[in-house]
Amino acid sequence: MAQLIAAQQVLENTWTEQPLEEDGNAGPFVAPSTPTLYPLAFWRAHREAIIASAQAGALPLGLLLQPDDAVEEIAADLPHLALIAINFPKFVDGRGYSSAALLRQRYGYHGELRAVGDVLHDQLFYLRRVGFDSYALKDGKSTAYAIAHGFTTFTEPYQASTDQPLPHFRRQP
């Protein structure tokens, strides 16, 4: 995974991604020894086994969502999840912003929410606002510059979002 930023610092990624078969289907489940991110197709196929195995091994559980994965489908699973990674295949594909907003605002997800894929400096501000709290910045981009400038582009936004539940017109004295 690219360069991970969270809590204003560069962190080591400790998660492994569960691959799918070449045809996009879930292969057999093998209990992992490290924290693992499961694609939704794999989760669907092995949900019970994954949960049981994680509990047995005291390992945190994560899901990797694609832009067209419906967050409604995993709403009931959120208590099991320590990490949800949302993939941005291209940074101009904005579906992940709605997925994040729904997970945080509607379904009350409090675990780590990570933006992965084509994650660039100039989207960090919006990503943070809708509820992401870790960011796999694309390789070759400056993490130092991102930490220093990427999250503070605008001090006071107009709208409510995950980071600010009230629109500005309700925050005025």
């Binding site: 912003y97 709605s98 919006y126 990503l127 107009y158 709208q159 979002s161």
Partner: peptide, 13 residues
């Protein structure tokens, strides 16, 4: 105008 300016969820429609 104010609501839609820099709306974080709807910047990449």
């Amino acid at each position: 105008r104010q609501w839609s300016t820099f709306h974080p969820e709807f910047a990449f429609l």
